[in-house]
C-alpha cells in the first residue's frame, strides 16, 4: 500500500464519516459543527487532489463563511423558539433508504464509467494549456474565469448579487439581530488588530499573484468575506439599515465594471466580453473581489449597510 493510496483512503473514509455525523442522528448543533469540520477536511482533500485554489475557497467560504452563516441561523431559530419537528416515520425512512441506495448506485456507476472513459488527455484542458500563453496569464483558472468563460463569471457575480437582493426581500426592512457579544473579551481587540490588516494584505497578495500562481479574485474575496464576518461578530462592524452610497456602489462595482468592459471593447471592434489585456483582467478581478466580499458580509449581517464601531 503506497502512501498516496493511504492518503486517498483515509481522506475518503474521514469525509464519509463526517458527512454521516453531520446529517444523521445527534443534535442539530453537533451536526452543524460536524459540517464545519467536514468543510475543513474537504479543503485538505482539495489540496491533496492538487488544487490549492479550491482548497483556499473551500477553507474560507465552504467551511468558514457557510459555517458562520448556519451557526447564526441556528441561534436565530432558537431565539424565536421555533418548534422543532418530530422524528420521521419508519415508513418514510424505508422509502428514503431505497431511494438513497439507488441514487448512490447510479452516481457510483456514472462516476466509475466516466473514470474508465478517461483514456487520452482531456481535450478541453489541452486546448486551455495551448491557448493560455497568448493571454499573458499564467494561472489557468484565472484564465478560464476571466478570459475564456467570462460570461459564466459575469452571470455568477450577478447571481450572488441577486441572492443578496432576494435575501433582503425575504427578511424585510428591519434590523436583524446578531450575536455580537464577545466585544468585551480582553483578547478580542488584539486578535482583530493583528488579523484584520494581515487578511487585507493576504487578499491583495492573492489578487495580484492570482494572475500567475494559485490565487485570484474569488479566493481573495472569500478571505475578505471571512474577515468581514469576524469583524461583525467581534463587534467592530455594526449592521445598519442606513443606506450608504459607497456600500451600494461596492455591491454593484463588480458587475458594473465587468459589463462596461465587456461592452466597451465593442467600440474598438473587439467581440463582446473580449479582454483587451492583462490590465483589464486585474481591473475586473479587483472590482469582483470588492463586490463579492461586501455582498457576502451583508448577506451574513442581513442588513443594508455596515458602520464601524469605535472602541
Amino acid at each position: 500500500m503506497t502512501w498516496a493510496l493511504m492518503m486517498d483512503v483515509s481522506l475518503a473514509i474521514g469525509l464519509l464519516f463526517l458527512a454521516w455525523q453531520a446529517l444523521i442522528g445527534g443534535s442539530l448543533l453537533r451536526g452543524i459543527i460536524m459540517f464545519i469540520v467536514f468543510g475543513m477536511v474537504l479543503a485538505v482533500a482539495w489540496a491533496w487532489l492538487g488544487s490549492p485554489d479550491l482548497a483556499m475557497a473551500e477553507a474560507a467560504i465552504g467551511a468558514g463563511v457557510t459555517g458562520a452563516l448556519i451557526l447564526v441561523a441556528y441561534w436565530r431559530l432558537k431565539r424565536v423558539n421555533a418548534v422543532e419537528p418530530a422524528d420521521p416515520s419508519p415508513l418514510r425512512s424505508g422509502v428514503a433508504l431505497v431511494v438513497a441506495v439507488l441514487g448512490t448506485g447510479l452516481v457510483a456507476a456514472l462516476g466509475l464509467a466516466s473514470v474508465a472513459a478517461l483514456e487520452g488527455e482531456p481535450v478541453a484542458g489541452q486546448l486551455l494549456n495551448e491557448a493560455l500563453p497568448e493571454t499573458g496569464i499564467g494561472n489557468p483558472i484565472t484564465g478560464v474565469l476571466i478570459i475564456f468563460r467570462s460570461l459564466d463569471t459575469l452571470l455568477e457575480i450577478a447571481v450572488v448579487l441577486a441572492a443578496y437582493v432576494a435575501a433582503r426581500a425575504a427578511l424585510g426592512k428591519r434590523q436583524v439581530d446578531l450575536p455580537t457579544p464577545s466585544r468585551d473579551a480582553p483578547l478580542m481587540t488584539a486578535l482583530v488588530t493583528v488579523i484584520a490588516p494581515l487578511a487585507v494584505l493576504v487578499a491583495i497578495y492573492l489578487l495580484k499573484a492570482g494572475g500567475q500562481i494559485p490565487g485570484g479574485a474569488f479566493q481573495a474575496s472569500a478571505l475578505l468575506a471571512a474577515l468581514g464576518v469576524m469583524l461583525v461578530l467581534a463587534g467592530r462592524l455594526e449592521s445598519t439599515l442606513a443606506v450608504s452610497l459607497w456600500v451600494r456602489l461596492a455591491l454593484i462595482v463588480g458587475t458594473l465594471v465587468f459589463c462596461l468592459m465587456g461592452l466597451g471593447v465593442m467600440l474598438f471592434g473587439l467581440p463582446l466580453l473580449a479582454i483587451p489585456g492583462t490590465w483589464a483582467v486585474y481591473l475586473i478581478e479587483a472590482a469582483m473581489m470588492v463586490s463579492i466580499a461586501i455582498t457576502l458580509v451583508l448577506l451574513f449581517a442581513g442588513s443594508d449597510g455596515l458602520k464601524g464601531v469605535g472602541r
Binding site: A57, L69, G125, L145, E156, V159, V160, L296, L299
Partner: peptide, 18 residues
C-alpha cells in the same frame, strides 16, 4: 487537475454560499 473543471467548481463554491 483540469483548469476548466477547477474554475467551474470555484464558481460553484461561491454561488453555493450565496
Amino acid at each position: 487537475l483540469d483548469g476548466i473543471a477547477q474554475a467551474l467548481v470555484l464558481t460553484g463554491i461561491v454561488i453555493a454560499v450565496a
